[in-house]
Amino acid sequence: MAYNDKVLDHYENPRNVGSFDKNDDNVGTGMVGAPACGDVMKLQIKVGDDGVINDAKFKTFGCGSAIASSSLVTEWIKGKSLDDALTIKNKDIAEELALPPVKIHCSVLAEDAIKQAITDYKKKQ
């Protein structure tokens, strides 16, 4: 399968790979997907006292589109308030990366990962 340039760019130069301490109260962790399905995304946000996401990190097991989707959302959510981050929809991700129909599930996972990370953060507060 031929990949779109934006997917390739994120895949080859993934932004914000890594992990935060998941026990840190300022950190929210989302882990979505399943190994059996071939996709697992872990997305972490670090939220400042002003309620703004000031850092984000990801690790992904999955195809190039899954890696690119998670890399892209770490860029997008940085500097956003939690409410603004929640407005990111899978359609936006799929459009930005020009994902073909068989890869749409990657963008769905990335959206879910944001939601889960935010839910996890809120639970800790």
Binding site: P14, P35, A36, V40, M41, K42, K59, T60, F61
Partner: peptide, 19 residues
């Protein structure tokens, strides 16, 4: 880049997780 590798290094059993 793999969350599964990270978990394996931490000694977490993948089968214990409810995916």
């Amino acid at each position: 880049m793999s969350p599964l590798w990270e978990m394996a290094q931490e000694g977490i059993n993948m089968d214990d997780i409810e995916w």
